[in-house]
Simulated scan of single mutants.
Amino acid sequence: MTSSASPSPPTAATSPAELPRPLTDSPPDALDVTLSADTLTRLDEIWPGPGGEAPEAYAW
């Protein structure tokens, strides 16, 4: 006798819920960072962008 068992449904993946972080009265520390002119120049050398002023430089 041959049984024709139906395949079991796929198992669902579970993960913990991503809850929003509570808002605080002070901004995150990253907003208080000031980059030196040398650092900004170096970043422009690494990632020069399309050139020109935005948004015109990004227009098609």
Rank of each mutant, 00 (worst) to 15 (best):
P10K: 02
A57G: 04
A17C: 03
L31V: 05
G52S: 01
A17K: 10
E18M: 09
G52R: 00
L40Q: 09
G51E: 13
T11Q: 08
W47S: 10
I46K: 07
D44F: 00
A13E: 08
T39L: 06
A5P: 00
V33M: 05
D29H: 10
S36W: 00
E18N: 12
L40Y: 02
L35M: 04
L31Y: 14
P9W: 05
S15D: 02
L31M: 11
D29P: 12
P7S: 12
R21L: 13
W47K: 09
M1H: 11
T39F: 02
S3I: 14
P55S: 10
L35K: 03
S8W: 04
E45L: 06
E56M: 08
L35W: 09
P7R: 11
P27V: 00
P48S: 11
S15I: 01
P50Y: 07
P22Q: 15
D25E: 14
S36N: 06
R21Q: 13
I46H: 01
L19I: 12
D32E: 08
Y58P: 05
G51K: 09
D29M: 04
S3M: 11
T34A: 13
L19M: 11
P16W: 02
E53A: 14
T39R: 05
P50R: 12
A54I: 05
W47G: 02
P22C: 10
E45G: 01
